[in-house]
Amino acid sequence: MADLLVVLALTLVVAAATAAVLTRDPARQALVLALLGLALAVLFTALQSPDVALSQLAVGSALTPLMLLLTVRKVRGRGHRGGRKRGRA
């Protein structure tokens, strides 16, 4: 039973990782990376390491997406719409 969970979590991680790489748009990739973080947290719990799962949850659920999307906003603000007035904050 425990092995079934490890295999299931592994397939989720492999699928999420492949999807994260194949999603070329950075904003959408941030979403899939958040899901990869969740799949990793489930895999770490199935491999009996709650500390690492907690660390992955803390970092991957809110911190990394926030930084990625802020970078996208800064770069996109400069790349296409260089104008003064930009979308709402």
Binding site: A20, P26, Q29, L68, V75
Partner: peptide, 8 residues
């Protein structure tokens, strides 16, 4: 895209 590269 470099941001995509950082994700990878």
């Amino acid at each position: 895209n470099l941001i995509h590269a950082v994700g990878c």
